[in-house]
Design a protein around this nucleic acid. Structure first.
Length: 280
DNA sequence: CCTTAATCCTGGAAGC
DNA sequence: TGCTTCCAGGATTAAG
């Protein structure tokens, strides 16, 4: 579930409980959920004893930077949740809780992830985290500008939707928001990236920013199980214009929306509003 | 280069 | 009511 707007929603709702708080204890229920960090004291401690100073997001990844320099990275994958619990509170569901940080003064933060496509990493410094995880990512989608997107797309001959989904090209967009943004920009998902005009790239960049910003304002999209750190679902799913609407009418022109497979992902577009891959 | 298929998992929905 | 099959917000890998 979590694309950029959902992760940003988690970041914002997690702050009030986690920022400024010291980690008194860490319980790791599943060792294999602590990913690439070399097994050792660093991974086992997972921030124990540190105070969380900032929560920073890049694309779909969320980092907690501690006052002693250490850094923790959380990636939610398909079904991950980060839950902020007050003193004495317990998660709404106790299963699939893989990591739990207890905080000095009460309360805790829990990472739950039934499908376990996500993970948690530990790094000795913020720089090490950036070096290992973020340098390879494209610009953050929430603030991407036309020039940066154009540079990142380069002369690629892939379908533009495949590029938007590639985190090395653009960080934060997933299957839902790729379709929503391309619809808004009036660009067909199968268009080769290199065939877009400067104006079209600018329209895509603008649409990406708008779609993501609106989704954040709505607290993210909840299709099935996404909740923020306070366990509240989002409402952005009510605003989808194309995602999940194949066979229904286009909200703009009334044409029947088409569903297909692009980059191995279910994709929906308007055959009239989105300039076709074989036209201009 | 670029695309496709398989893979890591659970669980909800649809079909019989 | 089962039981089976398919599908899902992500991302990597190998193979063609």
């Amino acid at each position: 579930m979590p694309e950029l707007p959902e992760v940003e929603t988690v970041r914002r709702t997690l702050g009030p409980l986690w920022l400024g708080r010291r980690i008194s204890g860490v319980r790791i229920a599943r060792r294999d959920y602590i990913r690439a960090s070399p097994p050792g004291p660093l991974a086992r401690a997972l921030g124990r004893g540190g105070r969380v100073e900032t929560l920073v997001r890049h694309g779909k990844q969320l980092a907690a930077f501690l006052d002693d320099g250490r850094a923790i990275l959380i990636h939610l994958g398909m079904s991950g949740q980060v839950l902020a619990l007050g003193p004495g509170a317990r998660p709404a569901r106790a299963d699939h809780c893989h990591v739990r940080w207890s905080l000095v003064g009460g309360g805790s933060v829990v990472v739950r992830d039934p499908r376990r496509f996500g993970g948690v990493w530990a790094y000795p410094t913020a720089e090490a985290l950036r070096e290992a995880r973020w340098v390879a990512l494209g610009p953050d989608a929430l603030s991407v500008r036309a020039a940066a997107l154009a540079r990142s797309l380069g002369t690629s001959r892939r379908a533009v939707k495949a590029c938007l989904l590639d985190q090395r090209v653009l960080a934060g967009v997933g299957n839902i928001y790729a379709d929503e943004a391309l619809f808004r920009a009036g660009v067909h998902p199968l268009r080769l990236a290199c065939s877009l005009s400067g104006a079209e790239v600018a329209a895509v960049a603008r649409a990406v920013r708008l779609v993501l910003r609106r989704a954040i304002e709505a607290g993210g999209s909840t299709l099935r199980d996404f909740v923020d750190a306070a366990n509240h679902p989002g409402t952005n799913q009510r605003r989808f214009r194309v995602y999940g609407r194949a066979g229904h009418g286009c909200v703009r022109c009334g044409s029947t929306l088409v569903g297909g497979l692009v980059a191995q992902r279910a994709t929906v577009w308007c055959p009239a509003c989105q300039t076709g891959p074989y036209g201009v």
